[in-house]
Design a protein around this nucleic acid. Structure first.
Length: 298
DNA sequence: AGCGGTCAAGTTGAT
DNA sequence: ATCAACTTGACCGCT
């Protein structure tokens, strides 16, 4: 069975996640900033439950949680811990409630930290900030039962092998909760599946195989080969990514995402697998539902 | 109330 | 040297 995943936001459904800017919060006295952040976290926990309800009602089996679900949580100046929030305990309780709903209905949840998370950066402060961010997402993942926190390989810095060794070293600095959820995804410029598979095996982290990125950044492996090798890195249901190019594969920027998925981009060899496929398409839930229909009609 | 400029963060490669 | 790409739309502060 293919389980389709929705990424973070909705196009038509009126479910919104709130954010705030560091600049505006920084101007407020600390207690007022914390009150605002508390209210945003509360609203986002409730929005997450609404998102999961929508997914369940519409046959969408996986939901990716926005990195900003707790806005500015790890920001160097306006960042905060849950104990500092006036309603921190209630915010956590509502996240756990969302997690209970997901568990009850067999929904999978996951995280995909932003490009700023670079575990192999040459700058120690960047690695520090990356680890802080991963620990925060792991904390929320624990509340809601998410099993994947998916990152890219980071920079190459002129030497992919050395940079992947650096990546592996940073893994050792993660808590068990973050380390146990961490996965790595092939990207569209630097690290292809063949680059990552060795570290996936040596470090024991699953490969999130992105078929679109693979086509933008090939490595000699076929889709079938990459699929098989990626699956071998998972000790649970594998999770892959899919998107279609905005103006076709011959367009000027094939790495950009289209609003919807072209069924021709859905690998035939995925059809019969037990697999989560996250749909990276700008039309969001509309794209997931359209793909679901297309797969049923085949 | 409506509008436009601005948002925490890194790295790469196209122009 | 700058800029867009990586889920981008929401928020803020001005009129």
């Amino acid at each position: 069975m293919i389980r389709l995943g929705l990424c973070c936001t909705f196009r038509d459904e009126p479910i919104k996640f709130r954010v705030a800017t560091a600049a505006s919060l920084g101007k407020l006295p600390r207690p007022e900033a914390l009150t605002k952040l508390s209210a945003l976290g509360m609203a986002n926990a409730d929005a997450l439950l609404a998102a999961l309800r929508f997914c369940h009602a519409n046959g969408i089996g996986c939901f990716r949680v926005n990195s900003q679900i707790l806005p500015l949580r790890t920001h160097p100046t306006v960042g905060y811990s849950m104990d500092e929030l006036p309603s921190g305990a209630e915010v956590v309780r509502r996240f756990e409630e969302a997690g209970a709903f997901a568990r009850e209905h067999g929904l999978r949840t996951c995280f995909h930290p932003d490009q700023f998370v670079v575990l192999n950066s040459r700058r120690p402060d960047v690695v520090e900030a990356s680890i802080r961010e991963l620990e925060y997402q792991a904390e929320v993942a624990e509340w809601i039962g998410a099993d994947v926190i998916n990152v890219h390989g980071g920079g190459a810095f002129g030497d992919k092998k050395a940079s992947l060794d650096e990546f592996a070293r940073a893994l050792d600095r993660l808590s068990p909760g973050a380390r146990g959820r961490l996965t790595v995804e092939n990207d569209d410029r630097t690290y292809a599946p063949a680059d990552l598979l060795p570290i996936c095996h040596s470090a024991g982290i699953p490969l999130v195989y992105d078929a679109h990125h693979h086509r933008c950044n090939p490595d000699g492996l076929t889709v079938e080969e990459a699929t098989g090798r990626a699956i071998a890195t998972w000790d649970r249901e594998p999770l892959f990514h899919l998107s279609s190019p905005i103006e076709g594969w011959d367009g000027p920027r094939p790495e950009r995402h289209h609003d919807f998925i072209d069924l021709g981009d859905f690998p035939d060899c995925w059809r019969a697998l037990d697999l989560t496929v996250e749909v990276e398409a700008k039309a969001k839930e509309a794209a997931v539902l359209r793909l679901k229909e297309a797969l049923l009609r085949r």
